[in-house]
Computed example of a mutant assay.
Amino acid sequence: MTIQQPARQTVDLAMFGGDRAVPRELGIRPWPMVTGQDEQAVHRVLRSGRFTSASSGEQEIAGLEREWARFVGTEHCVAVSNGTAALSVALGAAGVEPGDEVIVPALSFIGSATAPLHLMAVPVFVDIDPVTFNLDPAALEAAITSRTKAIVVVHLHGLPADMDRITEIAARHGITVVEDAAQAHGARYRGRSVGSIGAVNTFSLNVSKNLATCGEGGLITTDDADVATRA
């Protein structure tokens, strides 16, 4: 007796002749979307004549820091020039020094690995989970040595990494966890905002991100007042 298997249905991607995921009539939306409220905010800054945090009476940057700390659920936020700078400053504030090893995922934006290099530390690449594309906790533990000072955990493409297992491993070895949430603004892990779980954490405000400026920017979050002061 022969059992006939049902025919398999395949769906081609649009680039290979399949249907478009986004109908053509919707068009291409510009990103970031600049609203009238955004334009008013820029004009407010221009009229103030205060363009850096060193300007006497400047309130916009401090306001952003307060609002983002409140949104994420941390005690402190420090605004910096971009997401890679945020990682470099966060690692330095966490005590990473020349010669220390910093574990980073093998799949990420280049900034995850260049940030340790800015401190003359050594990035150690660890493989990812093939399902989530985030740091594989088992591979992470195998890569820890006596020189490991920090772990950079990237929430790639907005999907939170397995923070329970990662923080448990880090705590057992006395290693600092730094969340790189550059692509994960607003994402939550078991009810907590990403960027509030590690000892010190970072976000990017690059024009390509889901919380975008019209250029560059970065944010560092932490509950540790000493780390925030050093940053």
Rank of each mutant, 00 (worst) to 15 (best):
A115D: 05
R70K: 13
R8Q: 11
S208T: 12
R20F: 10
V96I: 05
D129P: 13
H173V: 02
E60M: 11
P160L: 01
E179F: 02
L135Q: 05
G95T: 07
E39L: 15
G186C: 06
V152Q: 03
G63T: 05
T52A: 08
G57M: 02
L140Q: 04
T74K: 04
E216H: 01
L159T: 11
A142M: 13
D19G: 12
E179S: 06
P23Y: 06
T52P: 07
L211T: 11
H173A: 07
S56Q: 14
N210Q: 14
R230N: 12
A93P: 15
T167H: 06
D223R: 06
H118L: 13
A41K: 05
S196D: 00
R8G: 12
P123M: 02
V72N: 04
S81D: 13
Y189E: 07
I175M: 04
H157D: 15
V177S: 00
G198A: 00
A7K: 08
M33L: 15
Q5D: 14
E67W: 09
T35R: 05
G217Y: 03
G217N: 02
L87G: 05
T202H: 05
I28S: 12
D223V: 01
T10Y: 09
I128F: 09
E67V: 10
I197V: 02
L219D: 00
N201R: 01
S81W: 03
R192Y: 10
T202I: 07
F203D: 00
P6R: 00
R29L: 14
D38S: 12
P130M: 10
F16S: 09
Q183W: 07
Q59P: 05
S88C: 13
A187W: 04
V78R: 03
I151G: 02
G49V: 10
R20N: 14
G57Y: 01
P32C: 06
R165E: 14
S56T: 15
S112K: 03
A187E: 06
T229A: 11
A121R: 02
G158S: 03
A115Q: 03
A90P: 05
G198L: 00
R50N: 15
I110N: 11
A231G: 10
T10D: 09
E58V: 09
L211I: 09
A79Y: 02
F203A: 04
L13M: 11
D162Y: 08
I3T: 14
A94S: 12
A121D: 03
H173C: 05
V80Y: 00
L119D: 01
D223W: 04
R47K: 12
W68A: 15
N206Q: 06
A212P: 06
A139Q: 11
N210Y: 08
V124T: 07
R50C: 13
N206E: 06
G111Y: 04
G57R: 03
C214Y: 10
N201L: 00
